[in-house]
Nucleic acid binder design. Sequence first.
RNA 1: GCGAGAGUGGCGGAAUGGCAGACGCGCUGGACUUAGGAUCCAGUCCGCCUUUGGCGGAUGGGGGUUCAAGUCCCCCCUCUCGCACCA
Length: 864
Amino acid sequence: MARGYDFQAIEAKWQRVWEESGAFAATEEPERRKFYLLEMYPYPSGRIHMGHVRNYAIGDVLARFLRMRGYNVLHPMGWDSFGLPAENAAIEHHTHPAKWTNDNIAYMRTQLKRMGFSYDWQREITCSDPAYYRWGQWLFLKLYEKGLVYKKSSAVNWCEVCQTVLANEQVEGGLCWRDGTSVVQKELPGWFFRITAYAEELLSSLDNLSGWPEPVKVMQRNWIGKSVGAEVCFPLADREGALTIFTTRQDTLFGATFMVLAPEHPHALALAQGTSQEQQVRAFIERMSREDRLQRTAADVDKAGVFTGAYAINPLTRERIPVWIGNFVLLEYGTGAIMAVPSNDQRDFEFAQKYGLPIRLAVKPVDVDPDERHLQQAYEGEGVLVNSGPFTGMASQQAREAIADFLEREAIGKRTVNYRLRDWGISRQRYWGNPIPIIYCDGCKTVPVPYRDLPVILPQNIQITIKGGSPLQKVAEFTDVLCPRCGAPARRETDTMDTFVDSSWYFLRFTSPKDEDGPVTPAHVNYWMPVDQYIGGIEHAVLHLLYARFFTKTVRDLGMIAVDEPFRRLLTQGMVCKETHRCPEHGFRLPEEVDASSCCRTCGRPVQIGRIEKMSKSKKNVVDPEDLLAQYGADTARLFCLFAAPPERDLEWSDQGVEGSFRFLCRIVRLIEDQEELLKGPNPSIPFQKLIAGRALYRKAQQTIRRVTEDIEDDFHFNTAISALMELANEIGRFELVGSADDADERRVAYSYAVETLLLLLSPFAPHLCEELWERLGHDGSIFQAPWPSYDPAIITAEEIVVVVQIDGKVRSRLVMPADADDTAMRGAALADERVKGWLEDRPIRKVVVVPKKLVNIVIGGVR
RNA sequence: GCGAGAGUGGCGGAAUGGCAGACGCGCUGGACUUAGGAUCCAGUCCGCCUUUGGCGGAUGGGGGUUCAAGUCCCCCCUCUCGCACCA
């Protein structure tokens, strides 16, 4: 450890000071500019990891910076503390989920405090606390009253490992988002939030979120998946009834030569009944119901289907067309039935080819006339209508409108908008979640728990098992209640809510975390909301961020808040990665399991220094923040996380890079310690204009103020801000503090100014050390009460500039000129320069381009 | 397949269309030292020369616009992420 930098003592000291003085508590002050800064709250898994450190370090720099800039900053922290890991831990360690969770929270809270993050801990939220989840139940009931919550039985995503339902958003590539195991379909009753009622607004208001990264908005747009088209009614042939389909390509209706239903379509079996196809249809539907649906609908699975034996009438051609059942048609999208236009849709084309169904061209490319009998693939682009009765010859875009008009006029169909977004299933068959406040009564059916009876408290006395349904079902004192409406014996709902419900409104609760009269206090929530800056991982691009937007809009429509969107600006930080070590025999190895010659310590075989991967226990490439705290302290850990990469990019961990950040802080200590006596004394006051020996250093300090301020403010480029601070530190280090007797005073003024500026600018990044050194320089009070330094544009501008002289775009000379040199002077000086003359050799000058104060480019062209 | 982002020294990364490689890591040499894995100083893209100093080349590849391109436009390659039979 370096002399003089006792980070353990320094960090403990200032954390205590901050805690005792309540330095970061926020209160509403309507006359001040507010700033609500929020980082995604963590799941209390046991200990913080490097991803947390990075996320929260980014946030904390902003929080401290903004406070020094005069903002009234709300910077709270809480715990996303419901969820399955608590139950798994309960089973493994024979402990109670509540105890496990609360112990973890207690430990992680101390870890966050040891990192020196400037949270208003008085506003801490724990979402497994009845004081919080009570209001989640309250909101559930309000939405229930408005018809935005409903119960239905449906095929749901079921994770066998978690023994619970997953929302569509929680299934990634057919696998459970949490444990990566396969998900099966299961018919189950459950509660849903009608997020589809907000589909259009969730989509359109993305356009107003200029402070969000484009990739996140794109992902949300894709997820919502708006399609504009029409529903068209196809009457059945030879019998009553009709099939309704959804299409975005009503311009291709004349090419619809057959129809396909989803296997689960309610008419699928009925249509085949009494035909010779009945047996085959029954067998096909049964086979499909056994197959995993996510596999069945994967794009690379071969299309398969069966003829129902029934026919429908194409309402435009009046032709009889066969009705099929196909594996590639989804019940949940549109109407669960399609018209098949094999000439103009590749999926239909493949199906038609396989089963020998007719193909008739409806739209052709403008300048080609394909032979429809020998099509190699469908033509899906825009073009001109053919074989389309009165619409033949029309451009396809126009035809979509014309045919939609025609359908509506003839009452055959109507314009429709379809969304890929489905309603959000929130029922979870697990214990450790917010109980759904519903009671089932034989007489009164579904009865909401009266508001006065909230919260429905999770029973403490419980047996947690993974198998055999929700643990709550077996707790009679929980389930057995009297119906609040008629007083008869009734049963409580035993499902709990998805934890994403808790995180969909916690940011509102932070504005009045202790209000016992409602989920939010209007005066407070309207002062603080929206969150001005939200920071978190990209992995929540659709899940959490879509749900939170939805909840904000519903709470707005309950009249409780004024904002349309919760998060004005969003920063998605990259992952923390590190190289991996892989032994051919033992798989991933810890760094200490590899010897100096890159061989496995267990078997001696050479270890591959593998790819840079996201830190994870299974890849054995994690760095524990705790070790970092012990070896280097919080300031170094924070500084490295911010310096190694810009925040939105992945960060590659480097032990040597950490060492470098630590060295930088040691250097700062020396800059001050070596001159402590001199710096402490009273400083003479000398205006900048009188500075000679100290002029350059003073100016550098001012330039650094500008760079750091702009880097933080404009786009969170903390890495370049830190590099500017390093430059300033280097220049201070080079500065000769002791000069001649005449200039001793002005040298001291410049040095002192530069050092203090450096500390102020560095303080958001390395808060403990800067507090300590600030105090040692003789200041009373916290450095964070000092205003952020300002600069004088006149001082930043140097008296002299270096003008680059190019000939044909190549640098040939540099001229030192007065800063006020105008274009004519620059041009004249460039042409008069001896080196330039040597290059010109009397050749004619075609053009001279002058970039004010920077560059002169002399164009002669041709050969040299 | 569709969509988004990225590709710059040995490495992490800098560069409002205006000197490519700031800052850091690593490395090389030197100083101070009983010692150095501390600290300080110098050097560090590649090639060439007449070696003080010059010249040429270089930002995944190829074209283009421009006095001037890492940056703007077109085509291609590679990687990462997201979506993926959504009618």
